[in-house]
Amino acid sequence: MSEQFSVYVPKLINKQEDFVHGHRACQGCGLALAVRLILKAAGKNTIVVSPTGCLEIISTPYPQSAWNLPWVHVAFENAAAVAGGIEGAFKALRAKNKKDNKKINIIAIGGDGGTSDIGLQALSGAFERGHDFLYVCLDNEAYMNTGIQRSSSTPFGASTTTSPSGAVSMGQITWKKNMAAIAAAHNIPYVATACPSYPFDLMEKVQTALKTQGPKYIHCLVQCPTGWGCATDLIIRLGSLAVETGIFPLYEVINGKYKLNMDFPKLRPVTDYLKFQSRFRHLKPADIAIIQKRVEQEWQALKQKVECFKKTGVK
């Protein structure tokens, strides 16, 4: 556990539960945990938009809903557009004095498929238009809702139902799409990565984002025991291991400036993370070596970006 908990954490955390129990997520679902924490950070004046995916299915079987906040689902590929429509409407209604000026947070929360694949166009459009909203991608690294099919966010080497490992296959053969970098390339004011294993970090980022004007993006790794093939009680550890191995670094890009939130003098070997998950079980040492090398390269590249901004002080 590298995040320091001060004793009596509940004092520091909003007690209100806006993602209520009774939701149908699997035992030990990191996605459900992340949503719970995000809503704690966002507070009451918040509207949430979700695309189709695990989150929508586990939370809203008619006539029940796990959402204590206003929430809307339309389809799989358009959460960012729907959120943009809400934001645009509020703006117009305020300009016409049809709505008070009280700030309402608009948060779209989608899966990796709904974000980096089918929803990427709508997201890019919403970023480019500059809607004042926060988009959170809950990245469980596959299409979990439909039965663990690969997405462009599935990591290299992972076995999924559509990128299965086999006699002549090592599972997913493409590298995980870097959504945070894609978001940052839109020159939006705030981009961050997060993971519910670090609840304070995640909540702080949500709050920072909501204080920032314009489009914001948080890419949140969420553990999925069902899709990853790991023990349900291990998920918090796994999130930390993803960070400590450098597989999923925690950083922010504030107005284009990179900031590493958690640095390590030495990264843990990737096997520390991979070995707890059956989706990586088939990997041979040579495959793991490829992953190790790539992780180190990307870690160095990230650190260079951070250093470069430190030196030049580019704002």
């Binding site: 938009v49 809307v72 339309v74 389809a75 590929e77 358009n78 960012a80 557009a81 729907v82 959120a83 943009g84 429509g85 809400i86 934001e87 645009g88 409407a89 509020f90 117009a92 209604l93 049809k98 709505k99 166009q121 709508a122 890019s124 459009g125 919403a126 480019e128 238009r129």
Partner: peptide
């Protein structure tokens, strides 16, 4: 709002309508 596709245009409209506009 200049949508980046008709799919988003109508999705923006749904968001807007459900927001009360």
């Amino acid at each position: 709002i200049n949508a980046e596709s008709e799919h988003s245009a109508i999705s923006l409209c749904l968001g807007s309508s459900i927001a009360g506009a």
